[in-house]
Each structure stands twice: as C-alpha cells, then as structure tokens.
C-alpha cells in the first residue's frame, strides 16, 4: 500500500528532466524538485537486458540457477563445488538475477560490478557507482552479448525493412518511438557496421549492443 501510494504520487511521477538551476539548488534531489533518475540496480540491469531481448524466463521460485560466469572466476575453496551453467537455449540460463546462486566468497561479477551488496553485513542503501568496468560488462559479458544477439533477432523479425527494424529495437529498449534524429544515427551505425563486417546480422547485433548500453536504458 505504502509503495503504491509512493509511486502514484504526483511528486514521484514528476518529469526527471533537470536544469543547471535545479542542479545548483537541489543537486541530490532532496527537495524533490524533479522525478527520480537513477541507474538501475544490479539485478535490474541483467533482468532488463534479458526481458527486452526476449530471453527472460519469468518462472517463479525454485532452486538457485547458474548463469554464465566469465572464465577464471569460479575457483571455490572446496574443489568439488560446481557451477553448472545451462547450455545456450536452456531455460535456467535466463532466469531473473534474483535466482542466481549466491556464494559470498565468489560474488557473481556482473552483480558485484553494479553494486550488489556482498551480503556480509546489513546494507542500508546501495551506492550507485558509474564505472568503466560496468561499461565492459554490458558490452562484453556473455549474458549481455547473448542479449544483444537475441535483440537483433527480435528486430529482424519485427520488420522486413531496416528502418523498421531499427525503430522496433529502439522502442523495445526505451518504450518510446525513435525520433528522426535517433533513427538517422542508428541507420548510420548500421551502415557503418555493415561496411566493416559485410555481414548484415553482425551489423544489426552491433546496433543492438548500442541499444542495450544507452544511458536511457541503464537509467530509470
């Protein structure tokens, strides 16, 4: 009830655009001079990439799952412990971040990088950092790579023509239509990528990766 009251309030639903004046007088938005604008939390960053690319398995409950880990991360103290990652396409590879197996001595890197707590002590609030290591994760990590490829597939299926595919991708990740200038920039990116790779799907995957990394997409 309280949460509902909060998110339906006029204050919460304010536009989150800001201005130099607002930043000067209310830099941390303590006076609620604008709507909230924050980077997504660690779990949401993953879940959203899976959701917009159509990979998310929204099954509820059940034992923990073991999504892909970068090589060299899994080095448990007890040698026999396993991290059995399901193969590409298997449903448990794409569950919500909430279901990822937690081992405190080996935190799941994509979550830790995005400021998920280490769970060793109580966390009153998460610090939301903004680092190059996060950029490397959403550009190169296996989960996000798979999401980019799947998103490109969804875009291809959405329309026969390239402009329609680009518009569909943008709509999927931001929830709003692309204006002419965005579409123009995405078209230039797709054409530039194609001339480098000579491969239409690789070019569209490059666009999809950019879409998943947009500031607007990583921020609520």
């Amino acid at each position: 009830m309280m949460l509902r009251e909060l998110v339906l309030s006029a204050t919460y639903r304010q536009d989150n655009r800001t201005s130099p004046e607002k930043l000067d007088k209310d830099p941390r938005n303590r006076l609620l001079s604008r709507g909230p604008r924050q980077r997504l939390g660690a779990e949401m960053v993953r879940d959203q990439a899976l959701a917009v690319s159509g990979l998310l398995n929204s099954k509820l409950a059940g034992p923990p799952v073991f999504p892909p880990l970068p090589a060299g991360v899994w080095d448990p103290f007890i040698g026999g412990e396993k991290w059995p990652t399901p193969k590409a396409g298997e449903p448990d590879r794409y569950r919500r971040a909430l279901y990822t197996h937690v081992k405190r001595s080996i935190p799941y890197p994509a979550a830790a990088t995005f400021d998920a707590p280490s769970r060793e002590v109580c966390t009153q609030r998460r610090i939301l950092s903004n680092t190059p290591v996060q950029a490397l994760a959403t550009l190169n990590d296996a989960v996000f790579r798979e999401a980019a490829v799947a998103l490109a597939g969804r875009m291809t299926a959405a329309d026969q023509a390239i402009p329609g595919q680009l518009a569909a991708g943008y709509k999927l990740v931001t929830g709003r239509p692309a204006d002419a200038s965005v579409l123009k920039r995405l078209t230039a990116l797709r054409d530039g990528s194609l001339s480098l790779t000579q491969d239409p799907s690789a070019a569209l995957e490059n666009v999809a990766s950019v879409l998943l990394n947009l500031d607007e997409v990583l921020t609520k």
Binding site: S19, T197, D215, L218
Partner: peptide, 28 residues
C-alpha cells in the same frame, strides 16, 4: 566495429544529456 558502436552511443547519450541534463550521463 566497437569503435563505430561507441561513436553512435556517445552521440545518442549526448542527446539524452541535452534532454535530461543529468551529469551522470556525461560521466557514463
């Protein structure tokens, strides 16, 4: 290929910054 992606990302994020004015966008 990554370079052309980041060039586009930068342009699009700059557009976002001009719209929303959030300094975090420039940091990103």
């Amino acid at each position: 290929l990554r370079r052309v992606a980041l060039d586009a990302l930068k342009d699009l994020n700059e557009k976002t910054h001009s719209e929303f004015g959030d300094p975090e966008t420039l940091t990103r």
